[in-house]
């Protein structure tokens, strides 16, 4: 599991021992994370686990009590203009200019970003069925969320940090949203791949959506990072086995509940054909029991 803290942070989004105390409560307890370029990370955890707080610390909207957060190597609390211009962030409660129309809003924000591309912006808006002429204050909650997402994506950011971006959206729109994340970074088949792969961190409860697109998953519980690894590795190596399975060392045990344990078969190779692999939903339930 990638829980060892690298001596030098190489990642595009990273933090080291991030802690936040609020009124004697530990909201974030020593979180260290190193997210590589091009990763699509799902941040999952129950309500109150600290997901929004973690994201706010990463983008520099909230200062941690101790520890550091970095974006593209730049301290989150002192982001340079260059880094800001390559960052897209969607907050849980989007902050929008209510009096403008959708189109005016897009143009207004667009002026702040050198890389803003009107055509790309309009394509995204069309894909998500955003009514361009309507006043923002007249949009439904779901449409306001879509607008926030288009605003975050339109300048083709290198880093995207999204806090429950699809919570109010219907399943079809959620799919369109997932597709929209990858527009403009197409891996065309006769070229090895685009240079600018966006690095994405999404917190969401909609695990079935995440399962389609994530490369990595981070599980948060009570302000602490329980697990962080590539999703493929979790599928291939984690197994749900009965508690009385023999030969399971402490290093192989991820968590134990009631009658079952989640184990890492890389530390218990004899168990690789025992039990069964877990879907994201099941793993979430086990880790939060």
């Amino acid at each position: 599991m990638n829980q060892t803290i690298p001596y030098r942070q190489e990642g595009v989004i990273s933090c080291q021992q991030l802690t936040l105390q609020r009124d004697y409560e530990t909201v974030l307890g020593g979180i260290s994370l190193d997210i590589p370029r091009g990763a699509v990370v799902g941040l999952v955890g129950r309500n109150g686990a600290g997901k929004s707080t973690l994201l706010r610390c990463l983008v520099g909207l909230t200062a941690p009590t101790t520890g550091t957060a970095l974006l593209l190597g730049c301290p989150s609390l002192e982001l340079t203009e260059t880094v800001r211009a390559s960052l897209g962030y969607v907050a849980q409660m989007p902050d929008l200019f209510e009096w403008m129309s959708v189109y005016e809003h897009l143009k207004a924000i667009g002026r702040a970003y050198p890389a803003w591309n009107e055509k790309r912006c309009l394509i995204l808006a069309a894909r998500l069925n955003l009514p361009l002429g309507r006043a923002v204050r007249k949009l439904s909650g779901g449409d306001q969320q879509k607008l926030a997402v288009v605003l975050a994506l339109a300048h083709d950011p290198e880093v995207l940090i999204l806090d429950e971006p699809v919570a109010s959206l219907d399943p079809m729109t959620r799919r369109d949203f997932m597709r929209a994340l990858f527009i403009g970074h197409d891996l065309t088949d006769d070229l090895p791949g685009s240079d600018v792969e966006p690095t994405i961190l999404i917190s969401s409860h909609l695990l079935s959506d995440l399962e389609r697109v994530v490369s990595h998953v981070a599980f948060l519980r009570n302000g602490r990072l329980q697990l962080f690894d590539t999703w493929d590795a979790m599928l291939e190596h984690l197994r749900l086995v009965p508690n009385d399975t023999s030969g399971v060392s402490a290093s192989a045990l991820i968590c134990r509940n009631g009658a079952q344990s989640v184990i890492d078969t890389r530390c218990a190779p004899h168990c690789v054909n025992l039990g069964h692999a877990l879907s994201l939903d099941e793993l979430f339930v086990e880790l939060n029991s």
Partner: peptide, 21 residues
């Protein structure tokens, strides 16, 4: 089908398709 088309059709990460190919 191209990486792009598979990814769009299934709303999955293009890197996943690219990895398989």
């Amino acid at each position: 089908p191209s990486v792009r088309n598979v990814a769009l059709q299934h709303a999955i990460n293009p890197m996943t398709v690219s990895k398989a190919y």
